[in-house]
């Protein structure tokens, strides 16, 4: 196992004493198979116990370790040391306020996620005794990729539009709304459209596509947003040009 000395530059911010963030560099002996999260854990365990950051699963599942690694939104547990040089710069996820060190304030994202009603709203109420809602593999395929989202917010950090217009509901939340809209068991599209087809919804998106490029789960949120735009445009034409056609 080869070892390499890495200069880990970490953006630090202590809300109790600092007026603005500053970089602090740690010299970390890294094994080649380590990820950036291992290097941070080494710092926390051996060099500086005051360093704050979020993580949990260490396997790209929980979505809590998102941060900027050399300016790129990454999961720290999936950013392999061997893909970087001897100097690695780590900052909190872009476009989010910094709570402390690498910990960001995520209330805005959580509220937006809730606003799109990301749960099944059945078409009709059915007693449990009536049995399950059945779905074919083809029906599942229409939304399966969007179920893979781990709410890591890398897409929000990559999205320049979210940075410039914080009201924008943003990639992951709209992709998740699309996931339920596409679900054959769901009947809640009209309720979600009020939120996602609004100005702060898909129409704030100019299809930069950065969200899909950085998504660690290949959810392709940009694709979902464009599909919502297409469907909303069709709605509009139906409503205004063919009012006799029922939705």
């Amino acid at each position: 196992m080869s070892e390499r000395q890495i200069q880990l530059e970490v953006l630090r911010y202590n809300p109790e004493t600092d007026s603005e963030p500053r970089f602090q560099t740690y010299s970390v002996p890294c094994l080649n198979e380590w990820v950036v999260l291992d290097a941070l854990n080494y710092v926390k365990d051996n060099l500086d116990t005051t360093l704050s950051y979020r993580w949990s699963c260490h396997m790209a599942v929980c979505g809590s370790c998102g941060m900027m690694v050399n300016g790129e939104p990454k999961l720290a547990c999936k950013a392999f040391i061997h893909e970087y040089g001897d100097q690695i710069r780590v900052e909190p996820l872009a476009n989010f306020p910094i709570e402390r060190d690498l910990v960001t304030v995520v209330e805005d994202f959580i509220a937006k996620l809730a606003s799109v009603k990301p749960y099944l709203i059945p078409k009709e109420d059915k007693p449990v005794s009536a049995g399950e809602f059945k779905q074919t593999p083809a029906q599942l395929l229409t939304f399966k990729q969007y179920t893979l989202c781990i709410n890591c917010m890398l897409c929000y950090a990559a999205c320049p539009q979210y940075g410039l217009v914080p009201e924008f509901i943003g990639p992951a939340a709209i992709a998740l709304a699309h996931r339920y809209n596409q679900d054959s068991r769901d009947g809640g599209r009209d309720e979600r459209q009020e939120v996602i087809a609004s100005h702060e919804g898909v129409w704030e998106c100019s299809f930069v596509g950065a969200c899909s490029e950085v998504c660690p789960k290949h959810v392709d949120p940009a694709g979902a947003l464009q599909q919502v735009k297409v469907a909303s445009t069709i709605d509009w034409y139906k409503e205004h040009l063919m009012p006799w056609v029922k939705k």
Binding site: P137, A138, L141, T142, F207, G209, S212, D220, A222, G223, Q226, Q227, K229, V230
Partner: peptide, 12 residues
């Protein structure tokens, strides 16, 4: 980028 905006599903 058209496949992202207009995916076409055939069966499964």
């Amino acid at each position: 980028v058209t496949p992202q905006a207009m995916p076409i599903q055939r069966g499964e």
